[in-house]
Amino acid sequence: MTKKILIVEDEYSINDILTMTLINEGYEVESYFDGKTALERIKIFKPDLVLLDLMLPDIDGFEICKQISNDHLVIMITARDSIFDKIIGLELGADDYIVKPFEIKEVIARVKALFRSIEKEKQVLSEEIIELGEGIKVDLFGERVFKNGVEVPLKRQESALFFFLLKNRNRVFTRPELLDSVWGYDYYGDSRTVDVHVRRIRAKLGTPTIIETVFGKGYVMR
């Protein structure tokens, strides 16, 4: 099935090149120049991925990301290149972050890498429910996580990271190793991506000990 991408970018030249290049790559594309229209179309178009500029004329891109990131993949595209802005974007649920000016080939590579990461077949471990303590139970077969009987809505990459560490319990992984194993060897992000996702998992599960930080090395799930 053809992947659907929605572009929200108010610079006409950038909007045009993103739109035409992604169409030529075989994606179904809609593009808009303001946040309000984009939010209305997202509900109808139901894109697999949103390419989102931060500096829009009407609605801040961070606010849009906050509204849509639970249901859609989001790659932020912006001229704001500070580490603070990148971390805020990731904290709000963005899956990747591209800084202008960019090479269009890099954008396409990141889009393809993100789609590949979510299309990999999930490894089925068993059909049992295991308990991790502090009210956390895991459905290994369905790859779902529960806290006190309520399912915790992990995003795709959060879930991929959680279950990768779960399947490799007691093994310490460095940040680069996790980027390669969970995001893919051709992922262009930096190690802060791992830190942000670990923080989000801990916050959603309400325990800082579910994933342990090994000082100077990386992360492990015991």
Rank of each mutant, 00 (worst) to 15 (best):
S126W: 01
F102Q: 07
L92N: 04
E106Q: 06
D95Q: 06
K66M: 14
E103D: 15
K122I: 05
F84C: 06
D85Q: 13
M76W: 03
L125N: 03
R80D: 10
E103N: 11
I129S: 04
I64T: 08
I44M: 15
I130D: 02
V74P: 05
F141P: 13
K137R: 09
V50M: 02
I108E: 14
R80P: 13
I118D: 05
E128L: 00
M55N: 09
G135A: 13
A109M: 04
I130S: 07
K43S: 11
I77L: 00
P47M: 08
L132H: 10
V74C: 03
G142A: 05
D96H: 11
K43P: 00
L51G: 13
I88E: 12
Y97I: 12
Y97H: 01
F62Q: 10
E121T: 14
L92M: 07
P57F: 02
A109S: 15
E106N: 07
S69T: 00
S126E: 05
L125E: 12
C65S: 08
V50Y: 10
A79L: 01
E119I: 10
L51K: 12
E143Y: 14
I59T: 03
I87K: 05
V124L: 12
L51C: 14
Q67E: 13
M76I: 12
V74G: 08
K105Q: 08
R80L: 06
I87E: 02
E91F: 00
K66H: 14
I104V: 15
I77E: 01
I42L: 09
C65A: 07
G133D: 01
I87P: 09
F45E: 10
K105S: 12
S82N: 07
E119A: 03
D53P: 03
K122P: 07
F45D: 15
K86G: 12
I42N: 08
R80I: 12
L132W: 04
L56D: 02
F84D: 06
R144D: 14
I104W: 04
E103A: 04
I77Q: 02
D85E: 13
I108F: 05
I118Q: 00
F141Y: 14
D60G: 11
G89A: 04
S117K: 10
V107L: 02
E128Y: 04
R116Y: 05
Q123K: 06
